[in-house]
Design a protein around this nucleic acid. Structure first.
Lengths: 220, 220
DNA sequence: GCGTACATATCGAGC
DNA sequence: GCTCGATGTGTACGC
């Protein structure tokens, strides 16, 4: 990893055109071939960048040219270098995550009764021609229910569930299938659209589900 | 901006939980208060971060604690510092972009005739209950047309236009409303879906539209 | 390699 | 402050 602090101007020509007037910035060159140009704000997002794989050519006139396979170009005109250091970092062991959609799915599948008394799981990741349905289950009356789980429930998720329901309802062995849109948080517009389509919305509490799960584990 | 190269392990407890085993990484501390932890790959995205506003407290035992208002925490256990430098960057003049959706919409609205002779603009950002339609216009026969504009035309955009059409066609003053999906580039799958739904696809040439606009400006 | 789905997305505009 | 849509979204995983 190479860190350069330099006064520079930058031009990007690729999926759009963009220009950065001259100023002092951080140029971050990673071992994976990526180059990014950071100001002292905007959280972690660089002002401009080129994703790997790409090639950096440092001209003798201070003009750095970064090119990728698609012909996109990042041209950095370096006027003055204030710092330049390189560091050997090695391969990173990587991030271990907990609390994402997959966990919500596991927890809800294991405690499907939170959706209603007498409900039972058919299976997780129920396969269809257009992809797996997160959870397929049966309500107390034996009716089929498809559940789409999201961490944050937005319109896209409702569309996704709608596509699954259209398909599942073509199967005479399953139909009629109704839908439940379950998320830790559901946006108003998504709720409106779901309701308009006869889809029920359920808000999940990750900590509560985990708590229930812990209780279950203590019981057995 | 402060740059630290350090052997460290990291724990994040917030919207999810995450852990990074000990390794050598870049710690990037920006003037806006953000902290990010970078490995030597993954392009510009850090392994872990805290967005501003947040506060960094450097303990004497090498334990750095970053906290934000929401109570999320990033705990960095620094085992060895290999580099530590600070740099004054000043305020960045910022990025100038060109060629995004807003420009396409302006250009097309101003030159609605490219969609067909005798067409006229009703208005840009025509409001509906589920959000504004990019362009509403009338064709030569006085029929209403809703136009959805995207830089890159994908399935999501077709779904979005479909929702608008469903809603607009419930309005007896407007119905029947047909749809046009306009983009610089339309993915094959999006084109198939649009066609299946009776939506016309139009490919926009940004440079050509800008050229037409320039001609218009020269004429008046 | 393309397409799909997820993400601590980030960011800016409008309300 | 919140919501919503755009993003050069990035990234992993499937086929």
């Amino acid at each position: 990893m190479r860190l350069v602090i330099a006064r520079c101007s930058v031009d990007y020509a690729g999926r759009l055109s963009a220009h950065l007037p001259s100023a002092t910035r951080l140029l971050l060159i990673k071992a994976d071939g990526s180059v990014s140009v950071h100001a002292d704000d905007r959280a972690y997002k660089p002002l401009n960048w080129m994703s790997p794989p790409c090639a950096l050519k440092e001209g003798e006139d201070g003009i750095w040219t970064v090119t990728n396979k698609g012909g996109e170009q990042l041209i950095i005109t370096v006027e003055e270098i204030l710092h330049d250091s390189s560091h050997e970092l090695g391969v990173d062991p990587g991030l271990i995550k907990d609390g994402v959609e997959a966990h919500l799915q596991e927890l809800l599948a294991d405690r499907i009764e939170v959706l209603g008394e007498g409900w039972s799981l058919v299976r997780r990741e129920y396969p269809t021609a257009i992809g797996p349905v997160d959870i397929l289950c049966r309500d107390a009356g034996g009716g089929t229910v498809a559940v789409e789980i999201k961490r944050r429930g937005e319109i896209d998720g409702v569309e996704q569930l709608t596509r699954y329901l259209d398909l599942l309802n073509r199967d005479p062995l399953l139909a009629p299938v109704r839908g439940i849109f379950a998320a830790q948080e559901i946006k108003p517009q998504a709720r409106v659209l779901a309701t308009d389509r006869g889809i029920d919305c359920v808000t999940l509490d990750y900590d509560a589900l985990r708590g229930i799960e812990d209780q279950k584990l203590r019981l057995f």
